[in-house]
Computed example of a mutant assay.
Amino acid sequence: MHHTALRVYVRDATLARIGLVDDYTSLAMTPRYNAVGSFVMEIAADSAKAGLLVEGNGLIIRTADGDLVDSGPIRAVDWARSASDAGGGRLTVAGVSDTSVLAEYTCWPKPTAAITAQTDAVYKISAAKAETAMRALVDLNAGPGALASRKNPLLTLASDGARGPTISREVNQFDGLLAVLTDLANAAGLGFRVVQVGAGLQFQVYEPVDRSGTARFSFGLGNLTEATYSTTPPSCTRAIVVAGGQSSPRICKVYDRADPLFPGLVVEQFVDQTGVDTASVDLVAQMDQAAEEALTAGAGKGSLSISPIDIPNLRYGRDYTVGDTVSAQVRSTWTTDVVREVVLNSTAAQGTTVKAAVGAESPSTVAQIYRYIAQVKKDVGRLKTRKAA
């Protein structure tokens, strides 16, 4: 097995490790920041390890250095054989990261009450730290504090670090738990994941690390083989927030945020807070936060895709990982942003290659690379104007 190849371990339904797969043909592993990761592995169908690769079991994938890349359940095992295949054909094993467990639940307005007692229209978060609020949502809807009929017996929660800003928000009844957590985390600049810890699955919230001073990629440094960037225009530059109007007076407020690449563009978006009673003492905070989330989600974005090369002093999984901030040279300028997704392609015979997507869904108002591209285009425009004059 190549010394840089990913290490693949199989676990059973109780999360107990039952074997090592060291003869896979190929493996594509995609960990994602604040989202569900995935994996696809191909292996000879007549491998001695093929019997372990069944739905209900799962994989634990680590780097050659032993660092956890991701873990998760096997969702599909497909068999195929062509005339060119030797032996018994090949198996394609696909699965998702353990963070997917969060997608199996919704947010109940009264999570400790039976379904017949769900009389509230919203679940209210009042002046809680973002991490505390996220943990409470998981705990009460899927974790140890959930109703017995909803509780996932394998799910635990890491200790509360009270990270992130204080938030006030109302969660609509039965919104998807994963979607709500993603919104909260991205707005707060936090990361979250579910990974296997011992014999359980642990929900963790963390603060991404700024490694832009040490994790630097460029063609000049010899640790980059490919780089591309692109921009997506804004979908919201004006948030029209409407609260009340049902059991309380209607209040409307407009929030504007100019886009650096399209400063004259106005894209309005209705932000429905009509379920919020306008007599609420935290009404302004709730409306402000709803506008901030809409403007952040709808901001123009820049995405940078890089294909870095692992070198002795800079390796994925050891020196940077998904969620960290890294630096990359775009043309002649350095830019920094969050690693949103990494695709690791590995073969047992040839080792592992890495491709990272940076900044596509940055939690900042507008990704730094987007601002950089906006400035470049403005400079080019001014240059053309001077030449024309």
Rank of each mutant, 00 (worst) to 15 (best):
H3T: 13
A5C: 05
L6R: 00
R7L: 09
R11Q: 10
T14H: 09
R17P: 00
I18W: 13
I18E: 12
D23E: 04
Y24L: 02
Y24P: 03
R32P: 07
Y33R: 05
E42I: 02
A48P: 10
L53T: 04
D67H: 04
G72R: 01
P73S: 01
I74K: 05
V77G: 07
W79S: 06
A80T: 12
A83K: 14
A83I: 13
S84L: 09
S84Q: 14
S84I: 03
A86W: 11
A86R: 15
G88H: 12
L91K: 00
T92P: 05
V93K: 06
A94F: 02
A94I: 03
G95P: 01
S97T: 04
S97W: 00
S97V: 06
V101M: 04
A103W: 06
E104M: 14
E104L: 11
A113R: 14
T119Y: 12
D120T: 10
A121D: 13
V122Y: 15
V122C: 13
Y123K: 05
S126V: 12
A127I: 07
K129Q: 09
A130I: 03
T132M: 05
T132E: 07
A133S: 11
V138W: 02
V138A: 02
V138P: 00
G143W: 05
G145H: 12
A148T: 13
S149W: 06
P153H: 13
S159Q: 14
S159A: 15
R163C: 00
I167D: 02
R169M: 11
E170Q: 15
V171Q: 07
Q173V: 01
V180T: 15
T182C: 04
L190A: 04
V197Q: 03
L201W: 07
E207K: 13
P208N: 02
D210T: 10
G213Q: 08
R216D: 01
G222E: 06
L224V: 09
T232G: 03
P234T: 06
P234I: 06
T237Q: 05
A239M: 13
I240V: 15
Q246S: 11
S248M: 07
C252I: 11
Y255F: 13
Y255K: 01
R257Y: 07
R257S: 11
A258T: 15
P260V: 01
F262Y: 15
P263M: 08
G264W: 11
T278S: 10
S280L: 12
D282K: 06
D282G: 04
D282W: 00
L283S: 07
D288S: 03
A290Y: 07
A291C: 07
A294M: 10
G300S: 12
L304G: 07
I309Y: 01
Y316E: 06
G317L: 04
R318D: 08
Y320M: 09
Y320N: 04
T321A: 09
T325H: 13
T325E: 12
V330C: 08
W334M: 11
T336A: 14
V338L: 10
E341A: 04
E341W: 00
V342A: 05
A348D: 13
G351Q: 06
T353M: 11
T353E: 10
V358N: 02
A360M: 05
A360C: 03
S362K: 08
V366Q: 15
I369W: 04
Y370F: 09
R371H: 09
Y372V: 11
Y372N: 12
A374Y: 01
K377Q: 15
D379W: 07
V380R: 14
G381Y: 06
G381I: 02
R382P: 07
K384E: 02
K384V: 09
